[in-house]
């Protein structure tokens, strides 16, 4: 099991009021899964993604990556874990504007301390896979939205992570480009045998899912082939 959550909860304090963004979520994902977590705005999608990406800490419950609990890990250990095992794709692409497409994809490899030749091999390989080898020298502001998202996908995969987490990856793209990006993600999922977890409110994205999980009011329910829901979708 690559990823597992146990009774994961997150509560925010807003003034005197407590907001329960997640309520005791159990979830599992394995290598090669392509899971889409679908739900409306405010349902807890991004909170769930932040917790399983180890960029936020749960109020209770735990996140296990490859069987190891992340609850007790220090900030620097969590940074190491994210660097080696997790790739992230953001809704707004989040590329570093002062770096070229090549350098953006290369950035996580600099964190890993790989040598120049190895970095070049991996970066160019992935740029070719996302179809942007010829635009490697361009800065993000010289690329279209779809191209930027493909660079972001290449950056997420370049460290050969165990899991890629994508937060509304097609939300800032037109429908055609969104489909292209999802197609690339699905293709890379199959080629690299990496678990993809995509959170989205866009029903179109669910077409690419191998597995669909609904989220509503901070609770997950798996949608089976007959359209019926099962709460707490531990696979």
């Amino acid at each position: 099991m690559i990823l597992e959550t146990r009774q994961l909860s997150k509560t925010y304090q807003v003034g005197q009021e407590e907001i329960h963004a997640l309520r005791g979520v159990d979830f599992q994902a394995d290598s090669g899964d392509f899971t889409v977590i679908n739900g409306p705005s405010g349902s807890g999608k991004t909170t769930f993604l932040n917790l399983i990406a180890c960029i936020d800490r749960p109020t209770s419950g735990e996140v296990m990556i490859e069987g190891q609990s992340t609850n007790q890990l220090s900030e620097s250990h969590l940074a190491e874990l994210r660097k080696h095992k997790i790739g992230l794709v953001f809704q707004t692409f989040n590329l570093i504007p002062v770096l070229s497409a090549y350098e953006n994809v290369e950035y996580p490899l600099l964190l890993l301390g790989l040598n120049r030749a190895e970095r070049r091999k991996r970066v160019m390989g992935l740029l070719e896979e996302v179809g942007l080898k010829d635009l490697a020298r361009r800065r993000p502001d010289e690329l279209s939205g779809g191209q930027r998202q493909r660079i972001a996908i290449a950056r997420a995969l370049v460290t050969e992570p165990k899991i890629v987490l994508a937060d509304e990856p097609s939300a800032n793209l037109d429908s055609e480009t969104g489909k292209q990006v999802m197609g690339i993600m699905r293709h890379l999922n199959q080629d690299h045998h990496v678990a993809f977890i995509v959170v989205t409110h866009d029903p179109v994205v669910t077409q690419y899912a191998q597995r669909i999980v609904k989220i509503r009011d901070g609770q997950l329910s798996e949608e089976n082939s007959r359209g019926a829901s099962t709460k707490n979708p531990a696979a």
Partner: peptide, 16 residues
């Protein structure tokens, strides 16, 4: 700020 969030999320330590 968001850029910092991004590079931290992909594994950059706060000291870096």
């Amino acid at each position: 700020t968001r850029e910092v969030g991004t590079i931290r999320a992909i594994g950059t330590r706060s000291s870096q």
